[in-house]
Design a binder for these strands. Structure first.
Length: 488
RNA sequence: CGGGGUAUAGCGUAGUCAGGUAUCGCGCCUGGUUUGGGACCAGGAGGUCGUAGGUUCAAAUCCUGCUACCCCGACCA
């Protein structure tokens, strides 16, 4: 049972759901979490599906080292600011036992040059690209890496911001600015579709204001989603890096006219934060609700009193086989440790979309009870119809939770031109507020101080967004609305 | 990095003010009965009370220092 309710204490509810659903737990070291098998299988499914899409669009996976030398990381001037995030540094390479049999660092083993645990891999990759790229014929390089990174964050939260996180980071190199920008936008669209089609999360595409862009990028594109408590969460970014890294690492190519040019670059990523977004977008006071397309278990079959009637386990196994053959991730929980009631609760907390229970009633009436997690509805379906009904129901659930999230986002997205109204909205209901902004960092900071809301992005609304107006705070000229929200 | 909280069995906790045999629930082990919404009975195992020191005949409890984690905020691809 989940003790906290969303409306009473959202962040305690969130923690309780993560832990009781067995997605992850605290490791005992600040900011480092243990991703449990259930959570990791969810990540594997996300990873598998996104990986397929990236491969279909021509990207290849590679792997670069975890440790980066300090000197390489310092090449790109702006990029050094990433140090301000805090990094983990390797300074020694040996440990030894002291008199009390305790482990100490062998001070004689101090490294001449410290190594940084990658906070992101642009530097090592661009150092490598210098060797890989000579001619326009070597371009584009469309490379992706699945791995981990470490950022020494002050304030951590399970999945949303952990010291170590798992992610994919794409790093591409192009012969022209136009092509690189197209790539960055293409990835943004892939992320958007992935969020919608797999995770059932509607997002807003946008550009980060200049003061919030990634250090070392020219344009930072992002997707922002709205959580159930009215706060925004950035769930993916795609950067047009311009020639910043190619200049820092002196990566030039010879173009068709025989002239040398600096290479154009992008980088982009999504992380285990996606799992946090899924939890906060869909789940309810009873626990997780996982979108069927990515749910590690799509259907759970629970037998009732199977000891009394051998037909119960026979029918259960038959249904398991039918659904498995249909490609549905189905689990038959025939353990004797717990009662059916315990299992009902357990798989509800875990957010399994469909539950089938099979007992004497099902045998007698040749109909089985099907329960859907998102609405709590139960229906009886004849056994012959199961193989058609279940896939359709999985789709219905996927669509339903997307619609729910979409409606919530729409209802909490408002255009406002009055600052008092703005303050009230942010304070009371949260949500995305579309308002004019004069483009200055100072105004952004003032608004943040007074309301806790920040500029999430300048939305890309295919021209519709161009509209002259006055900044909601300063009253100065503005030619488009930006999205303000409190955020994670 | 500022503020708050916590640390007792695998987990969650009582006991701390007022020093005197380590509390309860879950879980675990054995046996039996159960099983349609977190089953029940009987028996059993499990503890450097975060850490270092101090006061005392006696410390989970009082005093001092330290450490770790969690929460809130600031920061933040």
């Amino acid at each position: 049972m989940i003790n906290y309710k969303r409306k009473d204490n959202y962040s305690k509810w969130y923690n309780e759901v993560v832990i009781k659903s067995k997605l992850a737990e605290f490791s005992g070291i600040k900011g480092l979490m243990i991703i449990r098998p259930y959570g990791y299988s969810l990540w594997e499914i996300i990873k598998y599906n996104l990986d397929q899409i990236l491969k279909k669009t021509g990207h290849n996976n590679a792997y670069f080292p975890l440790l980066i030398s300090k000197s390489i990381l310092s090449k790109e001037k702006e990029h050094i600011d990433i140090f301000s995030d805090g990094c983990a540094v390797v300074t020694h390479n040996r440990i030894k036992k002291n008199k009390n049999e305790q482990i100490t660092i062998d001070t004689k083993s101090k490294l001449k040059e410290e190594l940084i645990i990658r906070p992101t891999s642009e530097s090592i990759i661009w150092k490598t690209y210098k060797r890989w790229i000579q001619s326009y014929r070597d371009l584009p390089i469309l490379l992706n890496q699945w791995g981990n990174a470490v950022r020494w964050e002050m304030r951590t939260r399970l999945f949303l911001r952990t010291t170590e996180f798992l992610w994919q980071e794409g790093h591409t190199a192009h012969a022209s600015k136009k092509e690189a920008i197209l790539e960055a936008k293409k990835i943004l669209n892939i992320y958007t579709d992935f969020a919608k089609n797999f995770m059932a999360i509607p997002v807003i595409k946008g550009i980060k204001p200049h003061m919030d862009k990634f250090h070392g990028s020219d344009i930072t594109y992002c997707i922002e989603a709205l959580m159930q408590d009215g706060k925004a969460l950035q769930i993916g970014t795609s950067h047009f890096l311009g020639q910043n890294f190619s200049k820092a690492f002196n990566v030039k190519f010879v173009n068709k006219n025989g002239k040398k040019e600096y290479v154009w670059a992008t980088s982009w990523g999504v992380s285990t934060r996606l799992i946090g977004a899924i939890i906060m977008s869909h789940s309810d006071d009873k626990g997780l609700i996982i979108p069927p397309k990515i749910s590690p278990i799509q259907v759970i079959i629970i037998p009732i009193n199977k000891q009394k009637n051998i037909l119960i386990s026979k029918l259960s196994k038959k249904i398991l086989q039918i659904l498995t053959e249909k490609g549905i991730r189905t689990k038959y929980d025939d353990t004797d440790i717990h009662t059916p009631g315990w299992k009902f609760n357990e798989y509800e907390i875990k957010g399994v979309p469909i539950r089938i229970s099979i007992g004497d009633n099902e045998i007698k009436h040749e109909k089985i009870e099907i329960f859907r997690r998102d609405t709590y509805e139960k229906v009886l379906i004849s056994i012959d119809n199961v193989n058609n009904f279940v896939p359709k129901l999985l789709n219905d659930i996927q669509e339903n939770i997307y619609k729910k999230a979409l409606n919530r986002t729409k209802n909490l997205t408002l255009k406002l031109d009055n600052y008092n109204e703005f303050k009230n909205k942010i304070k009371n209901s949260g949500g995305f507020i579309l308002s004019h902004w004069d483009g200055t960092e100072k105004t952004g900071k003032q608004i943040q101080e007074e309301t806790e809301a920040t500029i999430r992005c300048i939305p890309l609304l295919s021209g519709k967004n161009k509209q002259n107006g006055k900044c909601i705070y300063s009253g100065k000229k503005s030619n488009c609305r930006v999205i303000f929200s409190k955020s994670y």
